[in-house]
Design a protein around this nucleic acid. Structure first.
Lengths: 359, 359
DNA sequence: GCTCTGTTAGAAACTGGTTACTCACTGGCC
DNA sequence: GGCCAGTGAGTAACCAGTTTCTAACAGAGC
């Protein structure tokens, strides 16, 4: 019923009977037991059922047992919506990211999902498709459906985030720092990462670097580029060539030829995906890595270890960002301070895609 | 505070003032406007405000405007919880997967997220950590917090799923088919994929295949292995060696030596991650791919195009699965049938990791 | 001018829980 | 035996919306 990407679908046996389960008449899930029904069945008041279900100790064991039995018999499950309304909280937090296919955000998602899960919280996820406006709209929407928000918003203007700060609180920002924002942020020290990378490459004798630029709206790209320029300016006899590229495999792949043409002996790619693409592209052009050209990435995505050759890159603690985001958010939700902004120090991972500059 | 994976964290300036935003006294978000307050401000009843907010046409334009103005002035946003309770639905659906770091599930997540997002629905995500018991517990929990469920549950026994079917409905199953289950399932025709792969390899002259086994509890692994055995049994002079392996890069990497030792001329890996790992491992052992050994994967993860050499694999429409899961679920939520089970036909992608068998 | 009909908006019931307050009953102590 | 404290459970008020039912009112038709 629409142009499928891949397979022609092949029909099969119909799933048996009651899949739809009614759901037509009225909102309630048909026969679902309510607290009133359980109370009636156990011959107690709703209050008592509520107390038993929430483990209050002020109910006589015998009565509690009767209530539990009734609940069991009726397959009673408290309504999440009613509970949320009465308690004023949902038991859910949300995460908004620009792109779910980016390993960077997958890492945070994973770390956050596990930390929140351990605390018995549900996780709402929304993807903003790299759109600055959508980032904020989705953030508001997601926040309304939950008790707190973790926001990865590389595109939205800082001013806008400050405006929205009240409506989004409690929330924590990841992979970004915004001056004067009333929320803790967890970010990565791009400067330090770039500097380590540059030191490593100059140590190997490289004097001409090509930077494969990330998306111009990306705050990470901006930070990395600035650091590179500063490094270049501070090193006599050092050339930096900036090549427009992107953030995906294909972008890197397509930029292999410009790299070759610009004569750089080392490539600093915006991220690992671009670096991998470049690696493949260079390979196809018969360029040896690291013999002819060294290549570095950024982020240390899981695949970086398995490129050929394995990629020298800057590792950032993606899962840890997710975990810490949870802890910060949890603190905020309890009215505590959320703590200071944190900039994670990345770590240079030297693998086989970098080597001495050809003489 | 805890052993960080990567970076020593470096303190920075404290986020300004009101991050915590109170939240201490009582459940309600302090000053948040309610429908009553808006009604009062506009000098109308709550019913009228509700009607205006939901776009009912039975309100005089002039009154509607007054209500809208009041809502605007008070920054009114309807309480999601109250709305859920009154309407009997949450506007949210959920997805449960065994492993968020697996590209297979990331694909479904992405497709589902986009489709649900387009329909204005929120998406709840939970990860079961490959644990059969947790798969079902999380599924129930997630379902209770939403209006419908998409479940990827490769481990949970079919019997258990049938038992739970009532509590989980409406739901759709992905990457798996369970006989007699009252829910539509979207799966992949592993048989067909394996057969295409085998035909391709035998066409290239290969007669001895090594299968790098997936996790024994995985239903995909079971299906693929069965198909391979059937193919082997049906082809005279054909040898199939089954090597224990796993589902991750490292598993494949570690199995490179056994592959070499078993003398097979072609490797069929459980999935692309294993295949990539094997590729790297073989490369390290000085084995040429595809000169000495051909290697194939399964799934066509984004990275498969960028291994060296690019990986011959079986492509399955991961995002499409997510999109279709949404459509099926949507139908079910509207009391419609949800349709037939569907098995997607995978597509063989011949790239450079397979070649003629060495003579 | 009166009745009938249609439109608009309000009153009140309802969604399913939680919890502050109250009260009945029990037992200890004087 | 009466008073008091403590305990266990019920009553009823909330949480913030939606929706059915009803009533007021205006305009049309006779």
């Amino acid at each position: 019923m629409r142009a499928g990407t891949g397979g022609r679908a092949e029909d099969r046996d119909e799933p048996s009977s009651s899949a739809g389960s009614g759901a037509r008449r009225g909102p309630r899930p048909a026969g679902a037991a309510t607290i009133s029904r359980v109370a009636e069945a156990a011959g107690v008041s709703r209050a008592t059922v509520s107390r038993v279900m929430n483990g209050s100790t002020t109910v006589k064991p015998e009565l509690a047992a009767r209530v539990r039995a009734a609940a069991q018999a009726l397959d009673y499950e408290p309504s999440v919506a009613a509970r949320s309304l009465a308690l004023g909280r949902t038991g859910t937090i949300s995460l908004v990211v620009p792109d779910l296919s980016n390993p960077l955000f997958q890492g945070v998602l994973r770390g956050l999902s596990q930390a929140a899960g351990k605390a018995g919280r549900q996780l709402l996820v929304a993807e903003s498709n790299e759109d600055a406006e959508e980032e904020t709209i989705l953030a508001i929407e997601a926040r309304r459906n939950s008790d707190g928000l973790v926001l990865a918003s590389p595109r939205a203007p800082g001013e806008r985030l400050r405006e929205l700060s009240d409506r989004l609180a409690p929330f924590v920002l990841v992979y970004r720092e915004v001056r004067g924002l009333a929320a803790p942020s967890l970010s990565v020290d791009n400067d330090a990462g770039i500097n380590e990378l540059v030191a490593h490459l100059t140590g190997l004798g490289h004097r001409h670097l090509a930077y494969l630029s990330g998306p111009s709206a990306s705050s990470s790209h901006a930070a990395r580029l600035a650091a590179l320029r500063a490094a270049a300016a501070g090193t006599p006899g050092f050339t930096l060539t900036e090549l427009p590229c992107g953030s995906m495999f294909d972008d890197g792949h397509a930029t292999a030829r410009p790299v070759l043409e610009c004569g750089a002996s080392a490539v600093v790619a915006f991220n690992d995906m671009v670096a991998s693409g470049a690696l493949t592209g260079l390979h196809e052009l018969g360029v040896r890595v690291p013999g002819d050209v060294s290549v570095t990435g950024f982020d240390d995505i899981p695949f970086a270890r398995y490129t050929t050759p394995p990629l020298t890159t800057v590792s950032i603690p993606k899962n840890e960002l997710g975990r810490q985001a949870w802890e910060r958010l949890w603190a905020l939700m309890n009215g505590e301070s959320g703590g200071y902004n944190v900039r994670f120090q990345p770590r240079l991972l030297i693998r086989d895609s970098t080597g001495p500059a050809p003489s």
